[in-house]
Simulated assay, not measured.
Amino acid sequence: MSELFITHALRTPIGTAGKAFREVTAAELGAVVLSELADRVAGEVEDVVLGNCMGPGGNVARVAALTAGLADHIPALTVDRQCASGLAAIQLAAANLAASAAPGQGTPPAAPPPSTGGVVLAGGLESASTAPWRFWPPVGDAEPKRYERAPFAPADRDPEMGAAADALAELYGITRERQDAYAARSHERAASAQADGAFDDEIVPIAGHTTDERIRRGLTAQRLAKLPAVFRPDGTVTVGNSCGINDGAAVVALSTTGPGLRVLAAASAGVDPTLPGLGIVPAVQRLLARAGLTSEQIDVWEFNEAFAGQVLACCDVLGLDDELVCRQGGALALGHPWGASGAVLAVRLFSQLITQQNGRYGVAAIAAGGGQGTAILVEACR
């Protein structure tokens, strides 16, 4: 990649569906963050790229940009890679910005890439609370059937996410006890980070709310052990060791000039769609190979915690100590606003590596329905 930097990174608080942001649309959530970022960046905003899964359709990124007061001439693009949409939007924006900054055909090879001086705002937004209801067209005299979610793969290879997480945990021998312990730890870490103000600088207040809604201080593995399995009678996945259904937005500013987080590499990969949670594994492997780094060199790991068993399985396959992942809590505690979650991970990297100066290298990775994963590798340049 050409020299690219994440120079700013912000998000809304993450709300529980039907609660704090129950009347706030996805575009409105995104507009709050876009407006604040546009005020903070040094260069002119040239483009907006945002991920979204369950919005009203059309180009919600354009609606958010205009709602934020960005100039009419600034274009916007909406990206859908399901749960990986927010991080995929950053990956796509980085690739486009790198291409625009590359030398032209007539430029001598030894010349450095010219700097455009411009900024691209990229991330994701999601409002489960206001997601529209859709229905399949009626067949004959039958009543219309509600369209619950998009197909992620052909019907015979498209399990529900919870059932797929149960299957993944069983395949890799991830016990119920280990899942509950991991989930409790996520809440404990997030509660501690919240109390210490670790999230304060990354959050843009909205609708009178300044803190994440889902975090449960004092939640223990013993309490979680009392919850029943929800996807199959003999399963290990419960509501307690799964993420919530949430609302939120997160956006970063990308520029060809620093300081900030230098984007060293980005990668996406596919896996068996019946085990979609494993998508993190090949994305991270491809990412590290491209950058010529080993896992031991990474200081901050941010994986999207859709399910405790899923994250633990990915850590085991990667040979990564799960204690190193989401050291300030993850989506099990903070929440999982689908199309925004990948961008939330990028914001978390920025806070830990730049604001808190907790290391040099960071990796964010997220899996998506249909058997996909997206990851990004960054280096702190202060």
Score class of each variant (00 low, 15 high):
A167L: 13
R216C: 06
E177N: 09
A142F: 00
L334C: 13
E23A: 15
T107V: 15
A249M: 10
D299F: 08
F21H: 09
A110W: 13
V60P: 14
Q352K: 10
D321K: 03
E379G: 09
R157P: 02
E148S: 12
E177F: 01
S85K: 07
V139Q: 15
A65Y: 04
N52D: 14
S2T: 14
L37M: 11
L224E: 10
S35F: 00
A26D: 05
R286C: 01
A131F: 08
G43R: 05
T238F: 11
T238G: 08
A89R: 05
E3M: 08
A265M: 10
P233Q: 06
A163H: 04
P282C: 04
R382P: 11
I215Y: 07
E188P: 00
L92I: 15
Y147M: 14
A198S: 04
R360G: 00
E213A: 13
H73E: 13
A191N: 08
A26P: 02
S341V: 03
A102G: 05
G309K: 07
T16Q: 14
G117F: 05
R348E: 13
R157H: 10
A68R: 09
G329F: 01
T78I: 03
V317F: 01
A331C: 10
A164I: 06
E36C: 01
S255C: 12
V139P: 00
Q352I: 01
G162R: 12
A155M: 13
G309E: 09
A167C: 04
S100C: 06
N52V: 04
A375E: 02
P259A: 03
M161C: 06
P56K: 02
S115Q: 12
A265R: 14
A68K: 07
I366S: 08
P103F: 03
A250I: 05
S295V: 10
T294E: 12
G329H: 07
L92F: 12
V378P: 11
A313K: 09
R11Y: 08
E3V: 04
C243W: 01
S35E: 10
G162M: 13
I215W: 02
V119S: 11
F231V: 03
E148T: 09
E170I: 03
A102S: 15
R149A: 14
I376F: 03
F231D: 09
L278Y: 14
I174M: 08
A94M: 09
L332T: 10
